[in-house]
Design a protein around this nucleic acid. Structure first.
Lengths: 229, 229
DNA sequence: TTTCTTGGTGTATGAAATACACCAAGATCG
DNA sequence: CGATCTTGGTGTATTTCATACACCAAGAAA
């Protein structure tokens, strides 16, 4: 045991609630544990923080190792320090949440990682440790934050229709929005760029595609603009 | 060195940005460091997390040990994990912010703790470690949160006047509010109880005192009410 | 009793949120 | 090839909420 300290130290981990958006509903990415404790249980991806990496780096590294995901939108959530979170010893975990474009990543996550799978947020299996609680906090944060910051776009493909956008908000906020009012509001913000392009392979009139103008958003924010759905 | 581990572990600390409200302005409580590194510098109160206490417990304990403060409003802020935050070794810190009623605590903090003092948030000395950054994040959080949750009351005495309340918001948000509109709005929320009592010892007409009805607030929240200034 | 300071009140205007329904486009099907 | 079906796309009227704004009252001090 080569590392010794004068006082006992908690172990430090990161865990990550990764959200993705299906056509129908919000999903979260879980991995099946291969070892005790909680062997065979589903859990949030995560692992130990190395002493030479930052917390964000640890979260990104674990995410890639365990699920194959890269370049996700990642944000620190909360740090959980309950004394008996882990039956082995004291473990403090810095929780993150991540948003991914399922359209890009769905296949990858299903193949690269042996035992990773997406679950509907309303139908989760029992989770290891206090991961159910972490998940709840993450979901609450997502629901709260999506209204005041344009993070929802991270869940959609780069080019999306207004209907997709509206459905995303309806799914996360769990309430219906009025189509005309929604369009008036979102287009009025002047954050979307209408592309010269429409949907393909749909069995009805194809909708116009838009993309989110991040550069413009940051500029407006500097001028005091504040996003709100 | 009695505690040994297979892999190197970062040390884990808590730090706390404690805010109080003067007549004039927002203040933060700092302590002067008695040891290297940064000996003599001002810093946020904080210290190591014991292996048998939660993070919240650690924050409360350190706060009492270093500043004499008890029963403060405390909330976890963010966890800072930069690799070189501390020149000695890797230290990850879970930062908190706290709100105290200066009216109750001012004397205490000034006497109990040898080297603790309140500073105007707009006129801070140089701080140790990355405490300046932690402070900035805490202040930003306070400014953001005070508008959407009734945490501002934690900075006022239990019984306060509407003018005090308005000044608190003006100080934190750094903008003037209209007296009549402010009163209309805050009284319309039905969260304040008008007491049969007025200010004492003022050289002008004494204002009515109010208190915040926390029970009622929680009830309204359950019914979907959301606070906003 | 005069003066000075802060307390306390209502209304009119503009901006934004909401409620609401129909025609158009285009693929599919008989 | 016309009928049908599904989703796309649009505007106005109403209500609600935010804002702007000024004067008298109370009470202590001079």
């Amino acid at each position: 045991m080569p590392f010794s300290y004068e006082y006992a130290r908690p172990a430090l981990t990161v865990d990550c609630a990764v959200f993705g958006l299906d056509e129908q509903d919000l999903q979260v990415l879980l991995i099946r544990r291969g070892q005790e404790p909680y062997e065979g249980r589903w859990a949030l991806p995560g692992g130990f923080v190395h002493v030479d990496e930052t917390l964000d780096e640890a979260a990104l590294r674990e995410l890639e190792e365990e699920t194959g995901l890269r370049k996700v939108y990642l944000e620190q959530l909360y740090t959980f320090g309950g004394i008996d979170r882990d039956p082995r010893e004291r473990v403090v975990t810095v929780a993150y949440y991540a948003l991914v474009k399922l359209s890009d990543h769905k296949v990858k996550a299903a193949t690269d990682a042996a035992d990773a799978a997406w679950f509907d947020v309303n139908d989760l299996p029992e989770l290891a440790f206090d991961h159910r609680e972490i998940f709840e906090v993450a979901l609450a944060r997502l629901k709260g934050k999506v209204r005041y910051q344009p993070i929802g776009f991270e869940l959609l493909p780069r080019k999306f229709t207004l209907t997709q956008l509206q459905r995303m908000y309806e799914t996360i906020l769990e309430r219906k929005l009025d189509k005309r009012n929604f369009r008036k509001k979102i287009l009025g913000m002047d954050l979307l760029v209408a592309l010269d392009e429409v949907q393909k392979d749909v069995a009805h009139r194809a909708a116009r595609l838009y993309k989110f103008d991040d550069r413009r958003y940051r500029k407006l924010v500097k001028q005091g603009f504040s996003f709100e759905i």
